[in-house]
Amino acid sequence: MEFGTSGKLSEDGIHLDMDRLKKGEVNLGTSIMAITFKDGVILGADSRTTTGAYIANRVTDKLTRVHDTIWCCRSGSAADTQAVADIVQYQLGLFAMNSGKPPTTQTAASIFQEICYANKDKLSAGLIIAGWDERHGGQVYSIPLGGSLHKQPYAIGGSGSTYIYGFCDANWKEGMEEADAVNFVKEALKEAIKWDGSSGGVIRMVVLTAKGADRHLYLPDTDYKIRHT
């Protein structure tokens, strides 16, 4: 377990996700995002997992459920983010049983943040937490590498996100209708996949509202036009 000396924050700050990986580790060099909209939140992600330049998995599911209507997008080390998500899923399940009511997105974000902060020297995990709950509606939290917690109207992450800061800033609108919101996420991820070598494959989405979780899938061979499932 040897960290390279390249693990420091480079001037552009972006390739840090790659540098922090342990040797031979599977990397989610990724494009992930989550947005708030009129009725809740939408999470979106590409499906590429790489080890170096080799695509270890071309149909990865980077959208992970930690409670019925609280999900997260994972970027960074696949092993680290899976381990963290598993812990949070357990904690939230316990919380729901003990208190007899579903946890809030804030609760989930707090637990995620504590794990990422307390183990910042061991983890390479860039997470976006998005969820819907009755009290707070749809909320999006971003937890970047150091383990800080940021509430945002929408969040983008992973290596591919650098290519879509401009797109998202220019096209983002608050309180969109569901169809427009889905389209926004799709167009943004299409750009990220186009320009980022570490992102690719299908586009997955999860829509979280009072009605629960709804999965979307869009395929590259139909230019992401048709919704499967």
Partner: peptide, 8 residues
Amino acid sequence: GPSVGAGG
């Protein structure tokens, strides 16, 4: 979050 308030 969004200035219009959380949705849903």
